[in-house]
Design a protein around this nucleic acid. Structure first.
Length: 588
RNA sequence: GUCCCGGUAGCUCAGCUGGAUAGAGCGUCCCCCUCCUAAGGGGAAGGCCAGAGGUUCGAAUCCUCUUCGGGACACCA
């Protein structure tokens, strides 16, 4: 509908250009907005005010010229110039009636579009280290990333969803060593677990599995394991040095093969768990990209070499530094440590460059807001590897923290002790639907208060419940058709939409037609919350209507028209909920 | 100290990228079912858009500064 009006105004502007009224380039997109006040019609266009200066004309005079050149349209009832120069457009009832037909005809496809023109977009999200179960912070990234990806797909982008698996770093070694130490304890050794090790129950579980299958095959005497290891922090030492020494010890005492088996077991158990967790959450990926594959294919070394050759990497104090300050970063960054180990950042350079090499038109990273300091250095690296345009293909979306509240008090625990609220626990407590919806209800840069009690509540306070209830109510009405001895004729309903003159019906018709615009805006701005809010409003329109009028009336034409309208409402509610990864129940 | 995000009704948040009189929900108060789910609906009260400058036809929105919250600033990942 909006697109149609844009075409009309654009045509008028082109007309004026060829008539010589304009001697400048027209703006790329004409802004047409929904009028906030119904007294201003349905849509308002501010183009006359925008162009007034360049056209050396008064806004209102310019508006008159534009209006005079508007092509005729069957959907345009009235055009008025108002205020400082707004062009207010009022649609015919037929325009809205046609939209109802479009909803029912397109069904599940209603709201989808081709604006993305098949451009390839990669969305990488969650990508949590596989060193433990996902927690509620990852949940927000998962829900947000999945929804952004689905929205982009809905408006015609070719979307590639990816999870980057950090399976090559030091954290994984700490995990493997933690598992082995727990295994030793299960085998009967007594030891002091490192303060920097992973202490969660899942580490015990993995160790127990290994002990069941392999018995004491990898048991070593604990006094020998800790022989010569520098003290841990509680004992007056450095916890990092302590754990690194233990890793070295584990490798040498077990041998590479056995160490790798424990390492891989830990990795696979946790990764399988993450996969399952996300799948149950309705979050699926096209690719799980392993950091190890970058290392083994030599892409990390190749990236460092390329930066060395182009003079962006220099050596100092035994380490190799990327001169990111040349590209606006605060300080230079180490890519190879003085002990020869490549940093996580080195992998990240290779990974992001590889993303661009794979030919995506746009690359979207969704990170926790605590990683914001990383953005300039990754962009710097891409600029150094290629040029500014390469860096510009990367969008980093930062997701702020979510804080859980239960009975009005914070419910989130720290990760320190290994006790935290996992995504799985959250899903079990409030359900997948509520978790998905509440996570995307706020825009991503907002710190979020996640109210567990509200998410569980079966009342109008809970916006998700309210929306789903509207959907269920439509279904309920349709179920009662037959019980009341009525039948429904859709075509008859479509033919009689003109009977829908009540204000509630008008409001519902208007808001239904907004749906494609909302989906488009939510997708292009990466703002799923726009859709969530819209659905709440639409549900409100429906509940109000439901309360004010009977649908199953005796008069056939009116009954069919009303049923057709609420069918369309049901379809839009279902489509919108679907895009948010939430179910649309037929009864509640 | 530097950087990122936020400050809008008592509370939780929108505000369509600069438009017309600032919007929802909750909470508070009042009202509505012999009727398709009252698991609902209607109405009222409630605002110096953190503060001060600036940009222009026009600012909650854009730019500075101040202030208050949250977070980030490793040869960790």
């Amino acid at each position: 509908m909006k697109a149609h009006l844009q075409q009309l105004v654009t045509a008028a502007l082109h007309d004026l250009t060829s008539a010589g009224v304009f001697d400048f380039d027209l703006p790329a997109n004409i802004v047409i907005e929904r009028a906030r006040d119904s007294a201003h019609g349905d849509f308002a266009c501010n183009i006359a005010m925008v162009l007034a200066k360049a056209a050396r004309s008064k806004p209102r005079e310019l508006a008159e010229k534009i209006v005079a050149h508007l092509p005729p349209s069957e959907y345009l009832a009235r055009v008025e110039i108002a205020g400082p120069g707004f062009i207010n457009l009022t649609l015919t009832p037929g325009a809205y009636h046609a939209e109802v037909g479009a909803v029912l005809e397109a069904g599940e496809a209603y709201g989808r579009s081709a604006i993305g023109a098949g451009k390839r977009v990669q969305v990488e999200f969650v990508s949590a280290n596989p060193t433990g179960p996902l927690h509620v912070g990852h949940g927000r990234g998962a829900a947000y990333g999945a929804t952004v990806a689905d929205l982009l797909a809905a408006v015609g982008f070719q979307v590639h969803r990816e999870y980057y698996v950090n399976d090559a770093g030091r954290q994984m070694d700490i995990l493997a060593t933690s598992v082995w130490l727990r295994y030793l304890e299960l085998a009967g050794e007594s030891l002091t677990f490192p303060s920097n090790g992973y202490k969660g129950d899942y580490v015990w579980d993995i160790a127990a599995g290994l002990h069941r299958e392999h018995g004491d095959a990898w048991r070593k005497v604990s006094s020998e394991v800790f022989d010569g290891i520098p003290p841990d922090e509680p004992a007056g030492g450095d916890k990092e040095v302590h754990i690194d020494a233990l890793i070295m010890q584990a490798r040498s005492m077990l041998g590479d093969e056995a160490y790798l088996r424990i390492f891989d077991r830990a990795l696979n158990v946790i990764l399988d768990d993450i996969r399952k967790d996300l799948a149950e959450f309705g979050v699926v990926y096209d690719e799980w990209f392993a950091e190890r594959s970058l290392v083994s294919s030599g892409k990390v070394d190749a990236a460092i070499e390329q930066l060395k050759r182009s003079g962006h990497v220099y050596e100092e104090k035994g380490a190799f530094w990327f001169r990111s300050t040349d590209f606006g970063d605060e300080k230079d960054r180490v890519v190879v440590r003085d002990n020869g180990v490549k940093t996580y950042f080195a992998s990240d350079i290779a990974y992001h460059w590889h993303k661009l090499e794979r030919g995506f038109d746009r690359v979207i990273d969704i990170w926790g807001a605590d990683h914001h300091g990383y953005v300039p250095r990754v962009k710097a690296a891409l600029t150094a590897m290629g040029d500014k345009a390469d860096a510009d293909r990367l969008d980093v979306l930062l997701v702020q923290f979510a804080i859980l509240y239960r009975n009005g008090v914070k419910a989130q625990m720290s990760t320190r002790s290994g006790e935290f609220v996992t995504l799985r626990e959250l899903r079990e407590e409030v359900g997948n639907d509520a978790a998905r919806f509440f996570y995307v209800m706020r825009k991503c840069e907002q710190h979020m208060d996640f109210d567990l009690d509200l998410a569980k509540s079966q009342s109008t306070d809970n916006p998700l419940f309210y929306i789903q209830y509207a959907h269920a109510r439509v279904c309920s009405v349709l179920r009662q058709l037959a019980e009341k001895g009525f039948s429904y004729d859709r075509q008859n309903g479509l033919d009689n939409l003109a009977l829908l003159g009540e204000s509630h019906e008008q409001a519902l018709l208007r808001n239904l037609s907004r749906y494609p615009e909302v989906v488009e805006g939510a997708a292009l701005n990466h703002e799923p919350h726009q859709l969530a809010h819209y659905l709440r409003e639409l549900a409100n329109d429906f509940h109000t209507y439901y309360n004010a009028h009977q649908f199953l009336v005796d008069e056939g034409a009116l009954r069919d028209a009303r049923l057709t309208l609420i069918q369309a409402a049901r379809q839009v509610l279902a489509n919108g909920l679907g895009l948010l990864g939430v179910s649309a129940p037929e009864s509640m």
